[in-house]
Design a protein around this nucleic acid. Structure first.
Lengths: 123, 123
DNA sequence: TATCGTTATATATTTGAAAATATAACGATT
DNA sequence: AATCGTTATATTTTCAAATATATAACGATA
């Protein structure tokens, strides 16, 4: 029988299939792993700047991710308020929560796909 | 009924799920889309440098990709020869051909996965 | 109205990856 | 031995992306 992929790879390296997913439209990507974690931390902290700091991301980049995300949604995921008690903050809309849970499901089936493909490399 | 992902996205942007796949082991990635196209062009041209030029990739990067790929295989995918008629060249082993066809299959099932997930965004 | 920390935005700086450049070894052919 | 274009490798340069820095607007509270 001809050599198959598993015969070709070095056997002691634990080779796996891995990958990355995102949502995109004509004007670019807008929902990779980064923005989702950012949403989760905004939910915890109540502010974009605090969430960014936790992730060691610059505020500017965090703001751009959120702004870009909102631009792709029928209803924004994050409602910002500049000024007010404690200087302001940001709250997530129900749509943001749905995005997070959608991403969890998507991630789950992608993981299943990757594990299934990885099995073929060893089994 | 609660809002689902398709209600949340802007409807006129043709949003899709897209992604990227690669093989990796403990010491890093070694088979994304780039290296496969490179292999195909080395097969056509008989040289790494000509293949790199076709892809507008620097020779150095092409060489690193190939070298890194070989390092992960039980048997090298590319056999280089420096010197000789026409200065030398590189030939692919049967293992390289198998890698190419493996990648085609992998890509096919990934595309099916992505299309299936993308359908959920509109349907 | 003074204060606070946030959002929002522009500009400058850093940094890291890719490309460009340079050089040497290689080996069949003449 | 001279030539050729390739492989192999080190060094320099370029460029884009990320970060850092600076500044202003915001608005509830005291």
């Amino acid at each position: 029988m001809a050599k198959s992929i598993k015969d070709i790879l070095k056997k002691n390296l634990g080779t796996k299939v891995n990958g990355s997913l995102w949502l995109e439209s004509a004007d670019g990507r807008f929902l990779g792993p980064g923005p989702i974690e950012l949403l989760e931390r905004i939910a915890e902290t109540g502010s974009i700047s605090a969430a960014a700091k936790e992730m060691k991301m610059s505020y500017k980049k965090a703001w751009e991710l959120i702004n870009n995300l909102n631009a792709h949604l029928a209803t924004p995921a994050v409602i910002p308020q500049a000024g007010g008690e404690k200087g302001g903050g940001s709250v997530l809309t129900p749509e943001a929560m749905e995005l997070i849970s959608y991403h969890r499901e998507l991630r789950k089936s992608f993981t299943a796909f990757l594990e299934n493909e990885s099995k073929k490399l060893t089994l």
